[in-house]
Amino acid sequence: MSAVLHLERVSIALEGRVLIPPWSVGVPPGQVVTLMGPSGSGKSTLLSYLGGTLAAAFRATGRVWIGAREVTEQPPERRRIGILFQDDLLFPHLSVGENLAFGLRSTVRGRKLRAARIDAALSEAGLAGFARRDPATLSGGQRARVALLRLLLAEPEALLLDEPFNRLDTMLRADFRRFVFGHAVAAGLPVLMVTHDWADAEAAKGPVLELGTAADGMPVIGAARVPLAIDAARAAIPIGGDWSPSGKGADR
């Protein structure tokens, strides 16, 4: 199951203006790669592209792989790439349990078994007995945890984090960070996070890259200028272990 999320010379432009320069990166399973950048720089757009929901106005090139499976041309629902958004996007017409059931894969059959899986997920997240609750009655931190649980129950093969900690207050933020990274690493998922908060990058304990602007005004992605006590050695571009860039998909 565990496979590398690999971006091969992915670039995105809007009306001729380059937002993301051609970028290649491999994210190994169980590791979090962080892409830093100011708001409006196109970080979220990159995640939309990887998730397959890029708006038609953008022009994107490059290829995206999960292990040996290329997902570049696949519709979003076939990619098995989960995105955790800034908003929890719990469906307001469904209970907490139904939201999770919506995420849980249908290969888990039988109402009892499904309910058991959902209850187990909830109690493990400290939300035991919440299945019948209306999402609107939950606190922000609780909603955020349900959103991640829902995503994990869908058994994605890669996880994208779109500033998911932004909306939470400082106290909850550290808590939820541990929760997200803990689950992602335990599930052996490659994780790509975009954020503008250095604390997020630090907590991720992985390589940190920065989307910045070169002298000629073009955007560049390079190793982050680390302002905090991040181990500089980990700030290098990781190379995916089991992925070989040539040979696959050569028919294109």
């Binding site: 998730g51 397959g52 929901t53 519709p75 979003p76 629902e77 076939r78 098995r80 790439i81 989960g82 995105i83 958004f85 908003d87 996007l89 469906f91 919506f102 995420g103 894969r105 829902r150 995503l151 869908a154 994605p156 994208l160």
Partner: peptide
């Protein structure tokens, strides 16, 4: 649109 996007990342067609 946002909710359909969230559903898509969970593997649902539109």
């Amino acid at each position: 649109a946002r909710q359909l996007e969230a559903a898509a990342t969970l593997g649902y067609g539109r």
